[in-house]
Design a protein around this nucleic acid. Structure first.
Length: 590
RNA sequence: GCCCACAUAGCUCAGUAGGUAGAGCGUAUCCUUGGUAAGGAUAAGGUCACCGGUUCGAUCCCGGUUGUGGGCUCCA
């Protein structure tokens, strides 16, 4: 399991039980899943058993049943489980030789288990608790009485063995803990997580919306969301220019020709939208930015002295994603990648990758993310020679080592055209989403014949790196909303300061203050509505505005500002010192 | 795409044995000029997602569509 971005969830879950043996959960939850299966078998004798593992936050069990489980069924099952816990059955392990095990499972009429048993060599272990027996590697706790604090959470469909051509099982998810406190903590964590869901906060903070009339997976950025995005994009452009990238723009549609050359039509047609007929040619919505950047590169002969060439674009792409996979801003059909392509010589590859890692690290730190990279190596289906794969994989590994990065290896997880480094974003519930990525590509330079002239006067194939340092604007901002729980740091906050006059006679001064802040490029709003201070302060807090200024008789008289944040009163400031403070914090991105 | 669930006012939700609907918040207007997390009154606001069917009559029952949620699969 990957766990990159420092997370509230981790912080939450670890706070209570840092010293506790975390491994102990595997046994507990594994036994919990057996109790679940036993209860289901009692209530639905025809249910066939799939698999029932312990997972990070709990456990599940897959059943093959005629009718899917309803929420009411879950209540009944949970009650039956309680009886099993109270009965405190011992879990008895026994083993059978493969043939006997299969015969045994045939008697039990468990076709899915038989399928699994056939793939196991040697002895097969079983666990018995009361009348219930399950083929299982274990381990388990001693008896069912140990599972006191559990709860069934949800049901869903799940393909047998994760293959969509297989029958659909019905999965029941649950969780269990050793103490009531832990269980309650976990359940309240789930409640809290809902509140930081970017889809909820996105509406509450007026950041974005989606519309049936526009289509699913297509994001409308409201002013508050747009200013956050724009602030990030400004930084992104500035830093890219500083780091030797050149900014380019490419069109949103392109003739199919380019995707024939790139191979996208051949390999990724499923993810591309249907052609648009224009005059005599067929056009496609752009699913990737790379072909465009390659064409720009190829408009001239390039010398080895010109390399590396780095083209960057906040490029909007459109990809067909299956409807059931869409999710708020995190999985959409139209999105803007913070894309760049580096064309370099083989001998520059290592330095270029190191540069990208450092650059990506700069962005992650700017947003106060902790992260961990994953290195994905050669998959089963691939193009290019073994030598070039080894060279590129070695370069990625070496770059990670030289930059002092811990990483995990995802053996065979690379793309067919090259190995890559991935960073995952984690949402409020701990689900992972692909974020920044650094990919070496052997395919496109071949297909487009992308070359440079070497010092030997001969043509050489360029090495290409695709990379994003954020991922996409949609996913990144969606992730940020959850990361900050809507409480954006000052430099990103859509409204940085609210000025609240206490009564009408303070409006004049309040307007003056607002104007002065505005002149200093501070995002300020005046709340001169006919409401009480309490009311306006509360609303500013709910909107998570970092600084709230109150102006009444005292402030007008002393020529000061009364300043508070969401959580504490900062006391009195002169206008100038407040402006200095705010500007400094924005500058430092605190 | 697959399994299940859901869709009532801008938001959160209630409701109807089938007789075209309510609350709180928000919005507007008025009163109130109030010192750091909700002052008061009045009003406006709904083709009960959409399309069909059953029925004298459908927001409610049935079917379909669209969208949303939790998973599964997928994710260049």
């Amino acid at each position: 399991m990957l766990r990159l971005y420092n997370f509230h969830k981790e912080a939450f879950m670890n706070s209570e039980k840092k010293t506790e043996v975390k491994e102990g959960f595997i046994e507990l939850r594994h036994t919990s899943s057996h109790i679940l299966a036993q209860a289901v078998k009692r209530l639905y004798p025809d249910a066939k058993l799939g698999i029932g593992p312990a997972i990070e936050d709990g456990f599940y069990y897959d059943f093959y049943v005629d009718k899917p489980f309803t929420p009411d069924d879950l209540v009944r099952i949970e009650e039956e489980m309680k009886k099993i816990v109270d009965a405190d059955y011992k879990l008895e392990r026994f083993t059978l030789q493969k043939e006997d095990a299969i015969k045994f499972l045939e008697e039990l009429d468990e076709p899915f288990k038989i399928e699994l048993a056939r793939e196991i060599d040697g002895e097969i272990s079983f666990y018995r608790q009361g009348e219930f027996v399950d083929m299982c590697a274990g381990p388990h706790i001693e008896s069912t009485g140990g599972v006191k604090y559990f709860k069934l959470l949800s049901t869903s469909g799940a393909y047998w063995r994760g293959d969509e051509h297989n029958p659909m099982m019905q999965r029941i998810y649950g969780t269990s803990f050793y103490t009531k406190e832990e269980l309650d903590n976990y359940l309240s964590f789930l409640e809290e997580a809902k509140k930081r869901d970017h889809r909820i906060l996105g509406r509450e903070l007026d950041l974005y919306s989606t519309h049936e009339e526009v289509g699913p997976g297509l994001i409308m950025w409201h002013p508050n969301g747009a200013i956050i995005r724009n602030t990030i994009e400004d930084l992104w452009r500035k830093e890219h220019l500083k780091h030797g990238y050149k900014l380019v723009y490419t069109p949103h549609i392109a003739s199919e020709k380019i995707y024939q050359i790139s191979g996208h039509l051949e390999n990724y047609a499923e993810s591309m939208y249907a052609p648009i007929q224009i005059d005599t040619a067929r056009y496609r919505l752009k699913p990737m930015n790379c072909p465009g950047h390659i064409l720009i590169y190829k408009t001239k002969q390039r010398s080895y002295r010109d390399l590396p060439i780095r083209y960057a674009e906040l490029g909007t792409v459109y990809r067909y994603e299956r409807i059931g996979t869409l999710h708020g801003m995190l999985r959409v059909r139209g999105f803007t990648q913070d894309d760049a392509h580096i064309f370099c010589r083989e001998d520059q590859l290592l330095d270029e990758i190191r540069g990208v890692i450092r650059f990506m690290d700069f962005f992650m730190k700017t947003f106060r993310y902790e992260y961990k990279p994953y290195l994905s190596t050669r998959p089963e289906k691939y193009i290019g020679t073994d030598e070039i794969w080894d060279m590129a994989t070695k370069a990625l590994k070496e770059a990670l080592r030289l930059e002092g990065m811990d990483y995990e290896l995802d053996e065979g997880g690379g793309v067919f055209y090259g190995p890559k480094i991935d960073i995952k974003l984690i949402d409020a519930l701990g689900r992972e989403w692909q974020g920044p990525t650094i990919q070496v590509d052997f395919n496109l330079p071949e297909r487009f014949d992308v070359n440079y002239t070497g010092s030997d006067g001969k043509e050489h194939r360029v090495v290409m790196i695709h990379r994003t340092v954020l991922g996409s604007m949609e996913r990144f901002v969606g992730g940020l909303i959850e990361h900050y729980a809507g409480k954006f740091p000052l430099w990103l906050a859509p409204i940085q300061v609210v000025v609240i006059p206490i009564s009408d006679r303070h409006n004049e001064r309040a307007i003056e203050v607002k104007d002065r802040l505005f002149e200093n490029n501070i995002r300020v709003e005046l709340d001169d509505r006919n409401e009480k201070v309490n009311y306006k302060v509360r609303e500013a807090i709910v909107k998570k505005v970092p600084y709230i200024i109150v102006i009444g008789d005292r402030e007008v008289e002393d020529n000061t500002l009364s300043v508070r944040t969401i959580s504490k009163d900062l006391g009195s400031f002169s206008l100038e010192s407040f402006i200095d403070r705010v500007k400094e914090e924005i500058e430092k991105k605190l």
